[in-house]
Design a binder for these strands. Structure first.
Lengths: 350, 350
DNA sequence: TGTTAGCACTCCACATCATCGAGTGCTAAT
DNA sequence: ATTAGCACTCGATGATGTGGAGTGCTAACA
């Protein structure tokens, strides 16, 4: 429906305005456009067209006698229609990421860092939430007389430990029984499938050691529960200083940075897409489209990745509205592809 | 040697200047002091004394016809001699910290947060480095045909996992042997004690499975190695915006924040004290005394804690030179005491 | 001899003012 | 439909001036 109200020439001019503004960050005037484009139109004509574009809400003037800057609507149009897909050589990153680390958490921190370095914006990456993940293996072992160690491994190859205090030593035979009990009953189950019935049955069979079972189950829930506090890795937040329109008022910048520090807030940006099963694409929030108030002067681009079956997280970039959408989305795509299914592949180098 | 050059009255005046400046952040003039103190001296007298203090290097003038502000030397004197020990009711924190979490890493993040909220400065807390820590327990288990899980527990109750790929399945009997082999040879050893001899012996006894042993040993080294990348938790970094003298130039602030983000840099601040065995006190770096260049306009206060035998980390606070040293040091002391030996105590609630 | 009152001086902070120029909208000519 | 021209707007920039807080110095005082 957008296209109806814009003719070819207006689109060209809008495109020129936005591109120019993305580069310079300054309001762009009619003369600039007249020279910039291959339209061969005088500044006066451009001015008329620009007045129209303003009336239509695609661009706006910060004040009379200044050039025009894109409005949110303008950016939206740009992202949806004007932007070209470039497929640049960011692919190296993939190699880099894979080779440089093994631990998932470190990968994610790396991803955030690389992305920040590459784009000059602030970035965030959420650790996977273990959505619909299944129990693969549970093991209890004696640590000493007072403590036992519980290790839980999921299909997604995520491992969690818990040290559980016990009132009295457990002999090896009992331990073996408990292990068999746990594994035979829980293996292959997703969190949702472990219901009260299963739990009751387990506890009954464990007899006097039912408290240990409770403890283990708590840990299982914690490992796989979706209400687990979401871990978010951020990087390059100080990049936001590079864009005067975000950092002029100091207060604004401070608020923005606080949002990044108080990571729980970012979660709302990010969990939103996680839930929608099918949506695996890339999301763009411009200005007020973002659910976070403090980011109304920014744009946010997010992508959802899926490390393995049911293990998902989000990568996001925050920058000024005039961010280089093409580059950012390219980067996100590449990284998303790198991360997708990373756990399914064998880990060897060759 | 400081005391020699300062008589009673000069000290009182210096004290007044510093305290006043700590409160207001503005250069303080002679008239203010004359009213502030119980010395009952006119501003003119104060002026003379202040001129002396300036000549001695304890205070300085930002420009002619402005009041005086403390120099680094002045702050140093204040911290060393003037400051009173207050013992306030920060003790609640201890309870709070302990009750609200069990996992060490979360405790530390909490500590950083609380400290930041309490002091209004930027804070950082390093995760423990497992200095002289010992192996307590190692266990290998079959995950599936291609992978085994190694779990390593140290005396400090830190647990680490690694998934190790194997070329062919290991039967249970072999696994048992490997477990016994590892535990009987490594238990109770510190990292430094696992030398080439031990390793060679282990590998020999493991026969065809020596590659697994190598892998496990790698993980052990990683768990306990002191060259492990140091984890640092920061909080309240945006607090630094509250102090104009740090954030006026925007560039300065940006640089400072970058330092906080690039956490590796902070390590130098923090590892310094870790090595000195006996030093368990509180360190104060004023301005250029800090090893980090970007912090030359700040003061840094650090404290080293010891969770348990040989497991140490550092808590630090970064703020403007005119920070409330008393409060900060109080807070650090309390927190340090809370953390000290936390792992030695039983974990039960009562 | 130490303290104080007084005074001239300095210099920053702040507000006022004028100027400049980029950019606009409108009108009239092409 | 396009363009040249022109008057107009308005922020950015820099010069100017004023007020006030604070100093150093000198001279008077206890």
């Amino acid at each position: 429906m957008d296209e109806i109200e814009l003719d070819e020439r207006k689109i060209k001019i809008l495109d020129a305005v936005i591109r120019n503004y993305l580069e310079t960050g300054e309001p762009v005037g009619s003369r600039t456009i007249s020279k910039y484009t291959d339209l061969n139109l005088s500044s006066a004509t451009i001015r008329n067209e620009m007045a129209d574009l303003e009336e239509l809400g695609y661009i706006l003037q910060p004040h009379t006698s200044a050039g025009r800057i894109p409005s949110d609507k303008g950016y939206r149009f740009y992202v949806d229609h004007l932007m070209q897909e470039k497929n640049r050589e960011v692919a190296d990153m993939k190699q880099f990421v894979i080779e440089h680390t093994e631990k998932v958490e470190q990968v994610l921190q790396q991803v955030a860092k690389i992305l920040a370095a590459n784009t000059n914006y602030a970035t965030m990456v959420t650790a996977p939430s273990y959505h619909r993940n299944k129990v693969k293996f549970i093991q209890l072992s004696n640590l000493d007389e007072e403590q036992i160690l519980a290790v839980i491994v999921t299909e997604g190859k995520l491992v969690k430990n818990k040290i559980i205090p016990v009132s009295e030593p457990i002999d090896n035979e009992t331990m073996l029984k408990l292990n068999i009990l746990l594994n035979s009953n829980l293996n292959g189950l997703a969190l949702e499938e472990i219901n009260l019935g299963t739990i009751a049955k387990l506890k009954e069979q464990a007899g006097i050691h039912s408290d240990i079972i409770s403890n283990v189950l708590d840990t299982v829930a914690e490992t796989m529960g979706q209400d687990e506090d979401i871990r978010i890795y951020t990087s390059g937040t100080t990049n936001l200083f590079k864009y005067p329109e975000l950092s002029d008022s100091t207060e604004k910048a401070s608020e923005l940075l606080s949002t990044f520090e108080e990571k729980q807030q970012l979660a709302s940006l990010v969990t939103e897409n996680l839930l929608e099963e099918e949506n695996t694409g890339i999301q763009v929030y411009i200005g007020n489209e973002s659910p976070i108030q403090t980011m109304k002067d920014c744009s946010v681009v997010t992508a959802t990745y899926e490390l393995g079956e049911g293990i998902r997280g989000t990568i996001g970039i925050v920058g000024p509205k005039r961010m280089d959408y093409e580059k950012v989305m390219d980067n996100l795509k590449v990284l998303k592809n790198s991360l997708d299914g990373i756990l399914d592949k064998p880990k060897g180098q060759t």
